[in-house]
Design a binder for these strands. Structure first.
Lengths: 118, 118
DNA sequence: AATTCATTTCGATATTTGGTGAAATGTCGT
DNA sequence: ACGACATTTCACCAAATATCGAAATGAATT
């Protein structure tokens, strides 16, 4: 991931509504949610939500697909992956020093028990 | 780290000059750099740099300390740590699924050979 | 206390961003 | 083809952000 894309992604997430929307989509998994549901949950006007979802989409963080008359949005985990990778690699002191949230390097305790698709 | 702080941090990093400045400070380590040097490296006017450094400082990503007549800025690794933690925990599918940048759990291939400064 | 250096503050201005509601688009069911 | 529904597009406005240069502040040197 290049710096330009990173900036786009950071900027896209740097907003209350958008961060919330993205978190919702991440929770929901690859299936995503229709715009209406998101707008409803987040209590924002549909036109406003479209604006924010487009920001996320333009930054490559979410994808869009039509299902009937609904538009489903889903988090792009690959993009998020790239963002976190960029941050840990470039903004965390070389290669390490900011990786405590994910480091399961210790031999035992692999916590892979969150397979929920909701 | 709360969502509000996260948004502040994301917004602070979501800018060309600021991301570059922060990366520079991260590279430099805890000692940091005086404002003048940063402005020089980044080719921005001092007044402009102050503005951006303040954004970073306000977001808690950098700290300031005076040394003689210079003001040294340094990256706050703890804050960055918290940011990455928040993202991996809240925006990466529960607890895992976005942690390949830091997971050296696999026995072999640890690629720590990308020391490019661009 | 006057000068110089490093940095910040200030004021003006251009640009971008975010929010709103009304209209337009696309899709389905009949 | 028509009407209902889901979502987007548009036009407008307010507020935040970015940039610039000039002036002000703080610290060191003489």
């Amino acid at each position: 991931m290049k710096a330009t894309e990173t900036i786009a992604a950071l900027g896209a997430l740097a907003h209350d509504t958008r961060l919330e929307a993205f978190r919702l989509l991440v929770q929901r998994g690859p299936d995503g949610l229709p715009a209406g549901v998101i707008a409803d949950r987040l209590k924002v006007l549909p036109s406003s939500l479209t604006f924010h979802l487009q920001q996320l989409a333009h930054a490559g963080l979410v994808t869009q697909r039509r299902v009937g008359r609904q538009l489903f949005y889903a988090a792009d985990f690959n993009a998020m992956n790239g963002l976190v990778a960029y941050l840990t690699e470039n903004c965390c002191g070389g290669t390490a020093s900011c990786a405590p949230a994910c480091a399961p390097a210790e031999t035992g305790k692999a916590r892979k028990s969150d397979r929920r698709s909701a």
